[in-house]
Structure formats: structure tokens, C-alpha cells
Amino acid sequence: MAKSGRIAAVLVALAAVVAVAAGVVVYLVAYPPTASASPVGSASAEVTMQTVPAYNQDPEPTWVSYMIKQGDSWVHTTMFQVPAHSLVHFTVYQFDTGSPLRNPFMNQTANLVGGAENVNGKDVSLIDANVGDGVGHSFAIPALGVSAIFPGVSGDSTNQCDVAAPCPMTFDHNTITFTIQTGDPGSYAWQCFVPCALGYPIGFGGPMSTLGYMNGFMEVVA
């Protein structure tokens, strides 16, 4: 091959390598996909979420998941923005059945405004997850010490959500509301502490470890 041909071949090969590398970087930055629901207000904000017992859609149809309401539609994300130094009101529709926790210490609420959450109209600050329907999921921000827990729907119910997410309100669910106070701007990881990853050896892993399912980020913006 002539010298020019060899140079051209090398350049083409390099271009291909650069393209593949760039593609991988873009993929890694973009994955997992996280649309951002952004209910930002000035002094307070509303975040509406639901937990679904199975996402029933690709890529992970069997995984439990959170969803966030953006406008009138439910978005499959766990990223949301809230204003700094303000009250954030959460409304959670809990469709999943419950179970005990690995560490019963997380049976209680913590650092909520007013000290308790409201479950179906009743103030609750402690649930015994070892009895009854247990706890379905929880919402905790370890960095802020925040914890809210969502009792499970009855496992005997015949009206459990089994459709593709989001779950319509016609299925059995618990409605939980609570309020937290945000502080300085920053990115705060939140997660669920109930071992709800079905099929995984210790109930953790899978959706529990994957952004967009059972954990996410609360972006506190100025």
C-alpha cells in the first residue's frame, strides 16, 4: 500500500476509535435516562409521587419503582428539583404490598415538619412493620436525616395494581402526605430502605441500586 493510503487507513481507524469512544461517553452520561420533574415554586413546592409494585414496562418490567407527577402526567424518574430554604409538600400514592424492614429502626418517621406524616388522613410517626401489612416503601434522605414510611396495601386484596405503570387510582393504595424543610442548595440522594427488590438475595440490589427506580436525587436549587 502506498504511504498516502496507509496514512488514510490510520486516520480512518483513528476516527472510528474516537467516534466509538465518544459514543460510549455519551451513553454513559445519558444512562440511565432521567427526565427531571421540576415542581419549583418560590417558598414552597409540591411533589407528587407514586410507588408501583411492578413497572411492567421495558427495560425492567418486574422491578418496583417510583414515579413522579409532572403536570398531569406521570414520569418515570426519581429526579426532582425543589427550592432551597422552603417547605416541600410530598404526596405519595403507595400501591405496593408491604414487608418488614431489615432494620426496624427505620420503622419511624424522622425530621418531618410537624413530626409525623399523614396516612389516609391519620397522623402517623411509627409503624410496626413486623405486623399487619408491613411497610411497602420508604422515602429517606440520609444526609438530612429525613425519613417517611409508606404502609403496604393488604396482600390479601384482590384489587392490587397489576397494570403497566403508572397505576390508576382505582386500585388499592395508601395516600401519604408529609412535609420537609429544605436547606442549602445541593444535590441530595434519597432512597428506599425497605428490602423490596423481589428475587434479589437480600432484597437489595436491582431496583434498590438503580437510579430511576428506588432511589434518586433531590436537587435543591436556589
Binding site: 431489615r102 426496624p104 413486623n130 428490602p195
Partner: peptide
């Protein structure tokens, strides 16, 4: 945490959750 204390398992050197599903057996707490 007074209300919570009865729900905690008895103190042991380590927590070993029950085997099926990985949770405590409430009757043994």
C-alpha cells in the same frame, strides 16, 4: 425512640435476618 424500642430485635452481636426473603420473623423479635 422510646416507642420504637419494643420493635427492635433483642440485642445480639450481629443481626441475622430470617432466611426466607431476608426479613425478621416478627414472632422472634
Amino acid at each position: 425512640h422510646y416507642d420504637l424500642l419494643p420493635q427492635l430485635p433483642a440485642y445480639a452481636d450481629f443481626y441475622i435476618p430470617q432466611t426466607d426473603g431476608g426479613y425478621y420473623d416478627p414472632s422472634q423479635v
